[in-house]
Write a protein that binds this DNA or RNA. Sequence first.
RNA 1: GGCGCUAUCGUCUAGGGGUUAGGACGUAAGAUUCUCAUUCUUAAAACAGGGGUUCGAUUCCCCUUAGCGCUACCA
Length: 506
Amino acid sequence: MERKVRVRFAPSPTGALHLGGVRTALFNYLFARHYGGDFLLRIEDTDQTRYVAGAEEYIIESLKWCGLTVDEGVGVGGEYGPYRQSERKEMYKQYALQLVESGNAYYSFDTAEELDALRKECEGKGETFIYNAKSRGRLKNSLHIPASEVEQLLASNTPYVIRFKMPENENLILQDIIRGEVHFNSSLLDDKVLYKSDGMPTYHLANIVDDHLMKITHVIRGEEWLPSLPLHVLLYKAFGWEDTMPEFAHLPLILKPVGNGKLSKRDGNKMGFPVFPMEFTDPATGEKWHGYKEDGYFPEAFINMLALLGWNPGTDQEIFTLDELSKLFTLEHVNKSGARFNPDKAKWFNHKYLVAKPDSELATQVGELLTADHLAFDRPKVERICGLMKERYNFVSELYEDCRFFFVAPTEFNEKDSKKYWKEETPALMQELLEVLKSIDDYSFANTEQVISAWINEKQLGFGKVMNPFRVAIIGAAKGPHMFDVIEIIGKEETIQRMEKALASL
RNA sequence: GGCGCUAUCGUCUAGGGGUUAGGACGUAAGAUUCUCAUUCUUAAAACAGGGGUUCGAUUCCCCUUAGCGCUACCA
């Protein structure tokens, strides 16, 4: 019987979620939606030393902002909870013990310091230290020391960990949905710690136990987990859960735009683009990072951009809604190789969404900026401006900054432009134009165009000779939309005031 | 160092035994225009190298090289 698709996003709350994490969440979400399955959120907080306050809330808020609705998990609930691993702490030990009893795991009493020293020693000799069949016999563990001593150590509360007993010389041929067969030999793998001396499971144990208990059918995670795949598969076998073992898909990593390596949180502040969905302040250091949200990205654009990083629909289409993505998304079209993140393309996506936005929605956002600037918000006027100007910008903030002249008369005139267009004979000409402007009552585009064009023709002047200095006078610089649009929007009174002011100061 | 993964324009990618190797971002040029943009058109730009297999490989196989990841009582 086919099981209902169930996937999970299982971040660890060690800080803000970065681009790669959001993309992993997105692919899991899309996969669940495509197959009519469940998308779960599990918090993997088994490492108390790396816990960052507020990180969990940040993750939940980020998913919400992105529109990735969680069906089950932290913040939502569900019948397989709790979904926070720290709250499941008690149950992991029995599973670790079960493995010890079945001979698949053992107690290890070696201290971290002892093992570090061993590693250093081997390194010095140009060798690699691996805690596995080769070295077990020389180390302090229940496979090697007498049972009575083990009991004594346990009875005296000597710190210990439980390690997985990696089989010797087994050739493993594993399946990855994205990569196909992946080969490993177990002799090169080590006896990973499953249960830590602080009473917490490691990722490896908690992950397998929880995925099994939560009936996860597909594990979709970053490529950095590929080397752990053999361990995880072996754990399913050791538990006897092979028949319900999930399928695995390892996603390609997201790389830095320039330079080497995968994208890291440091890159954001350094290279001038955010790596986090939302602003984040590290509670420990106070360091603050930009977020896509605060930088003016639309969540749809952000998600759209992320979807195409490592996946493609097999067609030339680039703009998708979340629903369209859900319909189209399958793992077959996920790439194998890492993808360099391209900030320019991210901006382009936002531009596409900005242009597609209804003017009313844009106007609302501009209205907020106007209010913050203590300027009047005339909605119909702002909507008109948005419609006229939005094609030019990537962000609403850019639109606002560049269109401020519609709301505020220029306080200074661009030096280069006024030098270029404001000649000796210009003041006289502008004075004449001012009279014409005063004589017009209907400032609609059609009317001003007709009257002013007629005047220009009558005087046998070039269009540019009049409009350019006019533009400088009204806007303060050689930029902006058609002049007849500009004066229609600002109106007669404002037009005349600005002309008079320009004539007085230029 | 060991192990694993990957390899098409600068970047994201499509494609696939025989193609003018397609699209997008970015870049450049031209057109339009009262300015700045937008828009439109065009251009430059790629199958990492070497061996095989084959009538024919960019495509399949191997090697090399390069990149990336993992190598913790972190995830």
